[in-house]
């Protein structure tokens, strides 16, 4: 199996008020194509930082970073933006959607970067919304949706242009149990049916249990990796 994500000796630090804060400290990590990973670790351990590096939203200070076959250290600017559009889909904890656009328009947004015609974009976005079970909410604005529905629209948008990698930063962090389960079901299904490689940051062991591997990050260094976690049925509360 090939590595979809390959992290080699990656360091990342932030300087704040003259002080340098080392967040990632020579990190090494391999993630296989088509697997669902949960990234765990205490607050401030650098999970979001790592996710953003993998998604090409930020550059490492040093080290190598291969994602979906590209060396992210080599590309920059508009090219990197283009790479993001083609290869990764993001789901963040909250405030994922553009508030002034409807659900469908939000999903169509990344498709405007592709060569698709208006009609095709429409078809794709409707399909993606159907997949997340929100076709009937297509013309609603984010404010008219529940938190869980917003998150599902965000997932629809992340998959609309069919990227190989899905990156989710605490996608269930703000959700109640039931909505969280729906989102997790969806991610698991995207992984199983559509073979998406998924990296999901979470604090919730229940959520992490839905992944196939759990990566632990401790103070910028890799902790334990648990493989082959059996899929856990949605616990009833």
């Amino acid at each position: 199996m090939t590595s979809m994500i390959r992290v080699r000796n990656v360091t990342k630090s932030y300087s704040r008020g003259g002080e340098t804060l080392k967040v990632l400290n020579g990190l090494n990590l391999d993630m296989d194509e088509g697997r669902f990973y949960a990234l765990m670790g205490p607050s401030g351990s650098g999970k979001t930082t790592l996710l953003n590096l993998v998604g090409g939203l930020d550059h490492p200070d040093s080290g190598e970073l291969y994602v979906a076959g590209a060396n992210l250290a080599d590309i920059d600017g508009a090219e990197l933006a283009r790479w993001r559009a083609d290869n990764v889909g993001f789901v963040f904890q909250g405030f994922n959607l553009i508030p002034v656009l409807t659900a469908r328009e939000n999903v169509e947004l990344p498709l405007t970067l592709t060569g698709l015609s208006r009609a095709e974009r429409r078809k794709h976005s409707e399909y993606a919304l159907e997949l997340v079970g929100l076709k009937d909410r297509m013309d609603h604005r984010p404010r008219q949706l529940s938190g869980g529905q917003e998150q599902r629209v965000a997932i629809a948008r992340a998959i609309a242009s069919d990227p190989k990698v899905l990156l989710a930063d605490e996608p269930t962090g703000d959700l109640d149990r039931k909505s969280a389960e729906q989102v997790l079901d969806l991610l698991a299904r995207l992984n199983q049916e559509f073979k998406k490689t998924i990296l999901m940051v979470t604090h919730d062991p229940h959520a992490a249990a839905r992944a196939q591997s759990i990566v632990n990050l401790e103070k910028g260094e890799l902790g334990r990796i648990d493989h082959n976690v059996p899929p856990v049925a949605a616990p009833v509360r």
Binding site: L57, G77, A81, R82, R84, A85, D86, F95, N96
Partner: peptide, 16 residues
Amino acid sequence: IHDVGIFKALGFSNAA
């Protein structure tokens, strides 16, 4: 500002 962050994450360029 936040919207701009989303655009860029989605793959829109700085010029966009």
